[in-house]
Each structure stands twice: as structure tokens, then as C-alpha cells.
């Protein structure tokens, strides 16, 4: 089974975000990056499917040179080879343009399965995978939390809202968007890190970052959300003092203690 996993690099979740001067995006100069959370789970699922059924896992990441660290980490965890779609602007394009370029980069692979994360933690479009499936002519399922690929047909468990679930069957090749928590993620081993150095990373440079004539969604301004609730902040920077005041408030105002 040949499996392609799409992995995006996003700002580290613990990073304190600052808005740039033009208020068009966050300040990127001193930002640290990590792999998008659900994409890490998509890779793990691909590796497990390969262990069970044999085949090959190919990771594909699109963006500036910095995304190489996501690729290298995936190779160290056990992916066989990688495709890097290179371009500085490619981290900031809408999901239709992104899916168009990604489709171009991976369609020659003729994979049996494409796995993506269910949504990116920065832009949060929740669309790239589904659009990609449409462009590749594949059936898809979103928010997948279990995959059974042992039979002729693919059988997947989808998470629905409010504690409901549903199994779907569909033919291969197919695209699945993976939900976080589908399985426990492995760490890269030293051996894996060494082996990764010899693995192929194919670079692809798209002709244009804006296929089909440009961006369909343009961010004009970003800002911190307006706070709607009057929060009483306690401690004034001193966490321990805040804790003491809080206990007192819980007794005298909230009357919970």
C-alpha cells in the first residue's frame, strides 16, 4: 500500500504570538515552528498501516525551506521518502490554491491512500484535504479516528458531534482527514534519525503560487479578539499572590468554598 501523508508546519502552540506592524500576519522573525498537531497523527496512522500491510509512506510538505525540519522528523519516525513543495509564499495561500498545487505534486505517485490532518492550527481552514480529494477524483472521509484497510474496501470510523460515531466503507484510492488521538505517536529513535539522512527528499517548485488567477480569500487585517467578559485578574503578575486571592474570592464572592 502506497500512502501519502500531507504535513504542514505551523507556529509552535506555546509561542506567544505578536501581530506584525502591517497587522496582516503574526511577527515571524523569532517564531519557532512545529508540525501541525493532527498531521502528526496522520503520519502515525500511515506508519501503522504500512507495518500491517506493507508498502511505502511518502510525506509531502509545502512551504519555505524551514518546513524541511518537519520532513526530516517524519523521515526519522519511519516515512520512506518525501516531497517538498518549495516556495516562501506557499505557507499563506488559500486552501483551493494549496490543494491545486499539492494535487499537481502528488498525482504522479498513484497512491492508494492520502492522509491529511483534519485542520491546520494556524489558518484553520479545514478544507485542504477535502478539496484535494475532489481534484484527485478520490472519495474521502473527514475526522477519521480508526482505519481498517485490510479488506478490498476501506472501512473507516468517523467522529460525529456529541459523542456519535459512524463507519463508512469506500473504494480505494481514497483520502482521509485524520483526527488527533487516533493512536499514540511514536518518537524518532536514534537509528531512525541516522537512517533518515539517506532518504530521498524530492523538491518541487510550482510554476505559480496562485493557480487559477489568484487568491480567493485575502486577509485584510488581524487583531486580538475583543474581550467580551469582565474578567477579574488576580495577583497582578505574581501567580502565588493570585492563588491566595483566588481562594478568598471563591469563598467570599463565588461562595464555593
Amino acid at each position: 500500500m502506497k500512502i501519502i501523508v500531507l504535513m504542514k508546519q505551523v507556529a509552535n502552540k506555546d509561542a506567544i504570538l505578536r501581530i506584525n506592524k502591517a497587522a496582516t500576519w503574526i511577527e515571524e522573525a523569532d517564531l519557532t515552528y512545529e508540525v501541525n498537531e493532527s498531521d502528526g497523527y496522520a503520519l502515525e496512522e500511515a506508519l501503522r498501516l504500512k507495518e500491517k500491510l506493507g508498502g511505502e509512506v511518502i510525506v509531502c510538505s509545502m512551504g519555505p525551506t524551514r518546513v524541511k525540519s518537519v520532513i526530516k522528523d517524519a523521515l526519522a519516525r519511519g516515512a520512506d521518502r518525501a516531497i517538498h513543495v518549495v516556495g516562501d509564499e506557499l505557507a499563506h495561500i488559500g486552501p483551493f490554491a494549496a490543494a491545486t498545487i499539492l494535487a499537481e505534486a502528488i498525482k504522479g505517485e498513484q497512491s492508494d491512500l492520502v492522509l491529511t490532518g483534519l485542520q491546520s492550527d494556524d489558518y484553520g481552514f479545514a478544507q485542504t484535504g477535502v478539496i484535494l480529494a475532489e481534484l484527485l477524483g478520490m472519495p474521502h472521509a473527514t475526522i477519521v479516528i480508526e482505519v481498517d484497510a485490510s479488506g478490498e474496501q476501506l472501512r473507516v470510523k468517523r467522529e460525529l458531534e456529541n459523542g456519535w460515531y459512524q463507519w463508512y466503507t469506500m473504494p480505494r484510492p481514497a483520502l482521509l482527514t485524520i483526527q488527533s488521538g487516533i493512536s499514540q505517536i511514536r518518537y524518532a529513535t536514534l537509528k531512525g534519525i541516522m537512517a533518515a539522512k539517506k532518504k530521498e527528499i524530492r523538491e518541487v517548485t510550482p510554476a505559480s503560487a496562485a493557480p487559477n488567477g489568484g487568491s480567493h480569500q485575502r486577509v485584510t487585517k488581524i487583531y486580538f479578539p475583543e474581550k467580551t467578559k469582565q474578567t477579574q485578574f488576580l495577583g497582578n503578575g505574581d501567580a502565588k499572590a493570585g492563588a491566595v486571592q483566588l481562594a478568598e474570592k471563591l469563598r467570599s464572592e463565588a461562595r464555593i468554598i
Partner: peptide
């Protein structure tokens, strides 16, 4: 207006579609 970065920031978006 949509929320990005897991709710930390708001973005105003126009579409030229």
C-alpha cells in the same frame, strides 16, 4: 471575520470571488 490560531487571533477576510 474568522478566528485563527485556535481562537487566539481574529482575521478579517475579503473574497475576490
Amino acid at each position: 471575520s474568522r478566528r485563527i490560531f485556535l481562537g487566539k487571533i481574529d482575521a478579517d477576510v475579503v473574497t475576490e470571488d
